[in-house]
Structure formats: structure tokens, C-alpha cells
Design a binder for these strands. Sequence first.
DNA 1: CCAATAGTGTCTATAAGACACTATAAC
DNA 2: GTTATAGTGTCTTATAGACACTATTGG
Lengths: 261, 261
Amino acid sequence: MEFLNVSERAATSPELAVSTVIFSLRRDRGADEDSPLRLWIPLVRRTRQPYRGQWALPGGPLAAEQSLQSAAAENLRTTTGLVPRYLEQLYAFGGTDRSPARRVVSIVYWALVRQADTSGARDDRGAPHSELIEDPNVAWFPVDSPEVREQLAFDHGRIVEYALWRLRNKVTYGKVAHRLLGDRFTLAQVREVYEVVLDTTLDPANFRRQLKGSPGLVETGEHLHGVKHRPPKLYRYEDPVTALPAPAPAATASPQEGSRV
Amino acid sequence: MEFLNVSERAATSPELAVSTVIFSLRRDRGADEDSPLRLWIPLVRRTRQPYRGQWALPGGPLAAEQSLQSAAAENLRTTTGLVPRYLEQLYAFGGTDRSPARRVVSIVYWALVRQADTSGARDDRGAPHSELIEDPNVAWFPVDSPEVREQLAFDHGRIVEYALWRLRNKVTYGKVAHRLLGDRFTLAQVREVYEVVLDTTLDPANFRRQLKGSPGLVETGEHLHGVKHRPPKLYRYEDPVTALPAPAPAATASPQEGSRV
DNA sequence: CCAATAGTGTCTATAAGACACTATAAC
DNA sequence: GTTATAGTGTCTTATAGACACTATTGG
């Protein structure tokens, strides 16, 4: 019942790991403009037992002097070569039967990276999208693919499912959708993110009105050209330093997270 | 980058502890019916360094084969002799500077226990409320007392603040208020819980309408007597087995929690 | 011109809040 | 009877959704 008085029991305490569910938007490889946009996550192939050869979330043990969030960011950088546009703690998974090997408690984060940035790794057919990272044991999969839904190591399938639920919630009630886009975006692009994430269709007129009412969204004065119809306005989000999102828990829903790193 | 491949680094991994913020409603000790209802939490006085003599959240190291949730429930039982009416994971706190001694990652839960049940310990003036637990190092404090807001060990003050924010959120959007009451309750009692937790006043008529529209709430057919006005109806919540709250993440906002243990 | 999407206006259904009103107990 | 709270009815206002309509580009 003593708090932090733990040294004498250290040997019996479970191991601690940090993993990250990283979401990004991509079109199928045909890459024609009309192919549907989907949510993808990067996975790492396990090279040891248990679950050797199966895909798992990027993660690893927590180093002695590393904060949880920076460990998650490092998962991301190591796997994708990228920096997160959004990073938030998801949950601590601590069931005693999570692994057939030694017991591990996993603190899981979830992250958003922008569309174009996903080019840093190979997709599931092994074709590299760029030269950034060439690890054959890293690949991107659609979240609704059989590999993700049925084949993941450990309890990672359930973890992804929960992360997806959380993402949908945040998109609905918060304003994280644009973190999957570039700095400047049209309202239609934001709507498409909503539609992909929530797997639904939204009325363009009503969506526009609602989004334009949200604080921090400003017109850039620029327009997107090259489309075969009226050129839409480009928007951005105000620098969060200007419109500070409230200190500590209040609006963030987590004490120190929700950062645009 | 390997998941669960941690044995060789075990010695450098931080220690793992579980703590619990336990909320209950009580009136001030005068106990006359008119004294205001407030939120209280139990604290444990530290008997060792660091922060020796100061109050801290109940908690301790995670045993090797214990689940996170059962560790939290055990915090609760050991401190208060009670079983939680609601128990949910709050957050994993893992800053490297949380303790002047060895680094500890704390997975924190929050719990609700019912009003009458808080009699199992002493209050801050040392007067025991029952014979259940007689530990002089355990006491209940109002969450808005200086001891809780300014004097807690480690980062526990911020943790309580965040737990309070989460409680307010859950009360607003979810239906946990009745977990602070007995099995049968009047709508006015539920409203009082809302008012205490959210620190506001609510229109009785509108609150009633809103609550009666919530699923699972049923009349017992009984009335509360002994009041000096029209006797209010008593309600209860339907057995959650009958009205199952949805499998897994969906409605719960957490994968395995939100339980009425 | 047409096709396609951007962007506006407006009607409706629903829900939240304000608040008047009736009902039933203790005294 | 009075007082106090239980419980109902109803009006106003804000908001979400449906959907018609105009605007501006490429071809």
C-alpha cells in the first residue's frame, strides 16, 4: 500500500513497453485520383518468438530515462521516419495473459501523420514508395485488411480496434481531422477525411457551415487550382500559440498530450 | 523496435505502480441534513521518504501476476474496505521527474463508491466513522480542501485534478452519477449529484425530463417517505445484463473497464 | 453550351433552457 | 390553511439535417 516504495519488489514487477498505432490516409496503389482514400497503419514483422513472422504494432521496451510520449514518438520515427502531427496516449493494456512469454504491460499511444508523409516505407506488396526507410520488416496495411483485423500478434488486433474507435470519437467531437492533411487544405478535403474515418457520407453544405463555425480555422486567401470546376478556397488552422487550447486537462482530455509535435 | 522482446533490458526498465483516485459523496461532519454534500477522496499518509508524512493517493507496485484493474480494486479495498461501484482507467503517468527517488510509471485508475459506504475510515479530524478500518494513516478529504489541492506528494495533486475533470466529463455525457448513490434513488438525488460534481445548479423540470429519457432507468413503484412534502418516486437502473452496454470499446470508451464490480 | 464542385439560403425537426402551472405530502 | 418539493405543460431559442439554388471553373 506504499506508493513508490518499490525497489525491493522490482524483480517481480512486470515489464513495461510502449507501442503506437499510427494512422495515415492513402489511396490504393493504382494512385489514380479516383481510387478510394483509406486509413492505413504501419506494422512491424516480428523476428523472434512468440508470434515470430507475424505483424505487430511498432513498439518496444521503455528506456530508463525516457518519457512515455517520447518513447511513442520514437516508435514512430524508427518505423516510418516521420514526426507525428498528433500524438495522444490511448490506454495501458495490462492483462496477465497478453503474451505467452513473459508478462508485459503495454502503454499504447496513437498518432496521426499526414498523407504525403507515408511514403517513407513499403506497402504490403513490398513496393517501396520512397528511399526513406527500406526495412523489409515494416509495411503499411489498410486498417480494414484481414492482416490487421485477424492476423496481428498478441492482442494488437483489439488494440487497433480500440484506437480506431478513439480516432472516430476525436474526429467527431474534436478537431484532429486536418492533422491527416497538409498545412493548407480545402473544406472538401477535410470532409473527405471525416467520411473516410467515420465511413459515412456528409452533406457538403452542412459540413461546411459547421466547420466554418469552429474556432481557429482561417482562410489563407489562396485557392486550389487545376481542378475542373470552381477553385475552392484554401484554409489553415491558426497557430495554436495564438489560440491556446486551454491549460492542462480542461479541453485536451489528457494531461499533457494531444500535441502537434 | 522489437515488441515484447525485453528480457535483456529488464534491469533498466522503470518501476510500475498502480494508484487509484476514489471519489465518494459525504456531508460535512455536522451531518445535519442541510449541510452541503461534497466530493471526498481517501488518502494515505506516507511513512517513508520521499514525501514522508505527506498525504498521497492509495497505490503500490504492481504484482507480477495481477491485472491492472484488480490492482486498482485492491488499492480500494485495502484503503477503504470497500468494493467500487465504478472503476475505470484514468491515465498512465510516466514523466521522468515524477519522483526524486527512483523513476516510477504510475497507471492510475479512478473509482466511485457510494455515499454510505465511506464510513469505513476516519475523516481528517481523526474521528472514526465505523470500525471497519482503523488505520491512522488513512483519511478522507474534500477534493477542494487545501490538503488535496496543494499538499499532496509527488504529482498527485495534478492527478486528482485530472481525475476530477474526467469525472465531470463522464457525469455530463455518460451515466455514472447514480454510482455514487444507493440502488434506489429519487431523481432529485441524482440531480444533487450532478450539481455537486459539476458545481452548478440545474433546472429540476428539465433535468427530470432529460434523465427520464435515458435508457435503463426504471421506476421501482416505491416512494420515498418521511419527507415533509409530496413523496418522490424511487428509481433504479435496469440490470446491465438485460440492457447490455455494447461489446468492447463501442460505448464504454475503454476496452475492458467502466465496470460495476 | 455542359459537367462538376464551390458556396449560399432556407425550411424543418429536434433538443435545451426558461418558467408557469398543478399535485401531494407534512405541519 | 401554508410550505416545500414532485411532477407536467408549453414557449423560446439554438442546432442539425434536408435540400433547392446560385457561382465559377475546365472543357
